[in-house]
Design a protein around this nucleic acid. Structure first.
Lengths: 257, 257
DNA sequence: TAAAGCTATGACGTAAGGTTAGAGTCAAGT
DNA sequence: ACTTGACTCTAACCTTACGTCATAGCTTTA
């Protein structure tokens, strides 16, 4: 029977060692045994239970509650796991559906995107103070970071992608380059605004405004699901992607009449 | 010029007095003046700024960041307020759209809902252990609470509503009666599962499964927006409604192939 | 055998408040 | 004038779910 150390289990489940220590202390997840030197060792059963815990944690159920839920005498582990599996399948399905919708609307692609100057680059956020924002960003992170980010954006304008997927990938690159800086900055807000503009070109006029807004907000989920944007230095860092997702949702709710 | 005490401002904005004390201490929102007795008094300007703060707080922007954002020299207050207003309009529009969709699908209403027994009542969650769950719930909250809740559900079966709106209102009643208990309980989960079943009857077979799931998850927002479910004892208590909304989203993602 | 890497416990820090506690203040009713 | 009830002040401790040391013991590898 397989046994895992704290580190191994933590890595497998994507949590910190500290988290496992805490869960042990709270009685939420006890190791199956302790070695001579009091090292914690976990078995398969504990791995499964941890999955359950994380599953409920996603819904912001407090840890105490989770303990009660899982320790219910008639809790059906198999059924719960199946539902977990279905949740993953469903997520996959949602992404597939979105891609399908995107593919359909690609056919509307007509007008070329054009070269942009600095003012246009930031117009999604503010018409008049583009220079100010840019200067502010430059002061904060240096000219190089800002220019790299802008270069990506400008390339977006010139490129004329033949599908939305590559457009998203390119804008993702730009966002990625800004990510090590302050993610709540105006600069990132400008990127998000521009992001929407570009994607809208691929949607064309198909679909109601509401549908477009929904779809756009949905795209945010892609960033969360794609490792490309959640891994930094080999460490899971979902905070940034989640902020993006939220910001996109927010943008869709706010800016679209 | 209008002046508000802490309590008044707190009530208007839907936050606690403690929150205002904290924001004052952090320098995020200072009262416009202090009375002789050091009572905090806020003016219109502070009310507006508080709106801004809450706006960004919704996106989980840390308070420190919010301070930086709002104190930016070129921050355009009017524009920000307009965008806030648009956000509200957009929310309204989303609800309207959903109602429209619902109205359209009402025409598919054909099959009558039938009387349910206990097993059926809980089938959304588990086929075999309905009795166990029921017993558990009874032990926890007493027979009366459970029976009241079930009565509502059974009435749903008998009623044969002529529109989805009243169906939702009725199931809302049932959920409301269970709300003072533990909202993460299996009992509430059962209610949610049943909730979905009933609503599905009104959707009939129209729309893809994905659309149905989306629409169902969207309904959760109604609970959040409707004062009926967010006010308890005259106090704003959005936690429950938000949990419901989340749970419904989760259910939609999990249970729908 | 010594360095490198893993582990243990304990203690403190964090964000955004909640929750008392003790004391002062204000308006209304008697 | 006096009391009552509602309101306010500051200060201090509590909370959740961990992150981040610090110190010390254990294991593996060169």
């Amino acid at each position: 029977m397989q046994q895992y150390s704290v580190k191994k289990l933590a890595k497998m489940a994507g949590v910190s060692v500290r988290t496992l220590h805490l869960y042990d202390q709270l009685g939420l997840l006890k190791p199956s045994l302790r070695t001579e030197a009091r090292y914690r060792m976990y078995g398969e059963k504990e791995l499964l239970r941890l999955q359950q815990i994380l599953f409920y944690r996603e819904l912001d159920v407090p840890l105490k509650e989770i303990g009660v839920l899982l320790d219910r005498p008639h809790f059906d582990l198999v059924e719960a796991l199946q539902s977990h599996r279905e949740a993953l399948l469903s997520k996959q399905a949602r992404i597939k559906t979105m891609l399908k919708t995107i593919d359909k609307t690609i056919s509307h692609l007509k007008n070329e995107t054009t070269m942009m100057n600095h003012e246009e680059l930031y117009e999604g956020l503010d018409h008049n103070t583009a220079g100010v924002y840019r200067q502010e960003a430059t002061q904060k992170w240096g000219a190089e970071a800002v220019e790299t980010s802008e270069k990506h954006l400008k390339n977006l304008g010139k490129a004329g992608f033949n599908d939305l997927k590559s457009a998203m990938k390119a804008i993702g690159e730009a966002l990625y380059s800004a990510q090590n800086q302050n993610p709540t900055s105006v600069h990132v807000q400008a990127l998000i605004a521009r992001h929407y503009e570009i994607i809208r070109q691929f949607w064309g006029t198909s679909g109601s405004t509401d549908t477009q807004a929904e779809a756009y907000a949905g795209l945010g989920q892609l960033y969360v699901d794609d490792n490309r944007y959640t891994m930094i230095d080999g460490q899971a860092q979902p905070a940034y992607a989640q902020f993006l997702s939220k910001a996109m949702r927010h943008f869709a709710d706010t800016k679209l009449a």
